[in-house]
Amino acid sequence: MSAGAPAPHTAPVGDSPISLDGYQLRLATFEGPLDVLLRLIERERLAIAEVSLVAVTDGFLAYTRELRNAPPPLLAEFAAVAGRLLVLKSRSLLPRPTTADDEAEPSDLARELAAHRALRDAAVALGELDRLGLGSFPVGSSIQRPTEPEFRLVRHAPSLLANAIRRRLATSQPSRPHPPAPRVVSLADMVRRFLGLFRQASSVKFGDVLSVGSPRDEALAAFLALLILIRRKITHANQSELFGSIEVRLVEAPSSAMLADLVRSDDLGLPR
């Protein structure tokens, strides 16, 4: 019947129960026409024989008519079984001589159905074994490490989330004041600082421009400012020995225009 069925259709036909002469057949539990036919026969407490198939033909046809949204390959199988049942039924209705073979041999459909029932019985027995949950574990089975629990998103109404946030805010401690931000010394500041020192003396030491305990970036800014002043020929620097003190001497005081130009942070001669 279906050995070469082209498309898989092992999925349940549907979810809605179908009422059949007061008998509820839940489609989700059936996989094919043989299953339905077998249950119809069992409902009538009949043996699987040609006569039983004839007896349940009407019920099967009614069931087939009720099928909704079934995949076409499955519908075709139901139609094929219905066709075979109709042949059996019409044969039983029309008078015809009975041969010994007819009496002895059950129809193909009856044999098919008997095989299906045998299989179903075997599956039920296996299912019972499965339900017991017995298992056997071979030598050398490894112990599984406990896995982290999975975090799953759950549905919450927005109002619940809002209330949760309000509760949290109501009980939270006032935030501590942020620590003061570190003082930023720009290159322009350092240039100004150098020029301020030159108002008092024409020669200063590099270390004089730095405050006591100045951080590393302030020293870097001072050194860059010194380089800028040297490049603009405003100062001259001399270091008599390695790692020794740097003596900075004013060469030419900058004009006020040059000074204004110099302290603009974007015009300190730095690469852009």
């Binding site: 539990t29 996989e31 299989l119 179903r120 075997a122 599956a123 296996l126 299912g127 112990i143 599984q144």
Partner: peptide, 19 residues
């Protein structure tokens, strides 16, 4: 002891095919 979950039960279709 092995920290194993019980395997999911086999469906009717699986049981028939397995049989």
């Amino acid at each position: 002891f092995l920290g194993l979950e019980r395997e999911s039960r086999l469906t009717g279709a699986s049981l028939e095919t397995l049989a």
